[in-house]
């Protein structure tokens, strides 16, 4: 089911114009593999047939499905463990002291996909910080895709997903079996507020954040959009709050008002004042 150059160019432009996500040359294989299930699901005979329909109709659910398919990422619990260790060993112990008077923490998991990252944070807090049990902990988790947010809200994972990155001791403590699936217990689900949000579009009002995780998402955007997003993060992040990016991402040459701070094996960014 190879894709023609013309169809690829159309999809690349359509995805960019509606999400600012760059799908450049060489990513034909990715478009093909992500669109194949949609072609079958919508009963088209080929990708070309699908693209013809997309071109012939104004922006609709069909177009949204393509964008969502391109932005759904692989994820696992405690993915790239180092930022979680940094939050556990450095960030939260400091914040427990500095926020002792307000007893409130706002944590933002951006591009949370099917929920593994915010649930990992909630589990870590519950497991290692019993002293926070009477604090107001808001974990706000956002994603572009309503489909993945619905999966995230249910918190049900197949064995293939539950195996990924989650220590067995936490699995038996914070999950319960629902048939063959594993569901995050209600007490943990209740700690996370899932919201739809397009990072490259208009931002809804967000509380002032103590910690922001925006990992492995900037890579999808062009330089200008990355700068715009980092600028907006700077405005919602408290001055001493860390921003965690993916291990291959940086603010360097994009927004030099962020300064890199090493925390154990992880690096975070703080807006310098």
């Amino acid at each position: 089911m190879a894709i023609s150059a013309e169809s690829f160019a159309y999809l690349s432009k359509m995805i960019y114009e509606n999400s600012a996500i760059v799908v450049g040359a060489g990513k034909e294989y990715l478009v093909e593999s992500r669109l194949r299930p949609l072609v079958a699901q919508n009963k088209f005979s080929s990708i070309e047939d699908y693209v013809r329909q997309l071109k012939a109709t104004p922006f609709s659910t069909l177009h949204k499905e393509v964008i969502e398919a391109m932005t759904t990422n692989e994820t696992s619990f405690f993915r790239d463990i180092h930022p979680f260790e940094a939050i556990k060993e450095h960030v939260l112990p400091e914040m427990i002291k500095s926020r002792a008077s307000t007893r409130q923490l706002n944590i933002w998991s951006g591009a949370c996909s099917s929920g593994q990252e915010p649930y990992s944070l909630a589990i870590m807090i519950r497991e290692h910080f019993p002293m926070l049990s009477n604090w107001k902990i808001n974990i706000i988790a956002t994603d572009l895709s309503e489909d993945v947010l619905n999966i995230a809200r249910k918190g049900c994972y197949r064995p293939l997903d539950i195996n990924r990155g989650l220590p067995a001791a936490l699995m038996v403590k914070y999950f319960e079996k629902q048939g063959v699936e594993w569901q995050v217990k209600r007490e943990i689900r209740g700690m996370v507020d899932f919201r739809q949000m397009n990072l490259s579009g208009h931002w809804p009002s967000l509380p002032s954040m103590d910690i922001v995780l925006m990992r492995n998402v900037l890579i999808y955007f062009d330089q200008e959009t990355k700068r715009g997003i980092l600028g907006k993060i700077r405005r919602v992040l408290k001055p001493d709050g860390p921003l965690f990016l993916g291990s291959a991402e940086t603010t360097f040459n994009l927004d030099d008002s962020f300064k890199r701070v090493v925390m154990g094996k992880a690096a975070a960014y703080r807006a310098s004042t």
């Binding site: 463990i81 293939l160 195996n163 990924r164 990155g165």
Partner: peptide
């Protein structure tokens, strides 16, 4: 006394991640 647990079916990535754990 088992230290970790993987449920079949599993992916190669899951095995590596558990060994990291």
């Amino acid at each position: 006394g088992a230290n970790e647990y993987i449920i079949k079916p599993f992916s190669k990535e899951a095995v590596v991640e558990k060994i990291q754990i």
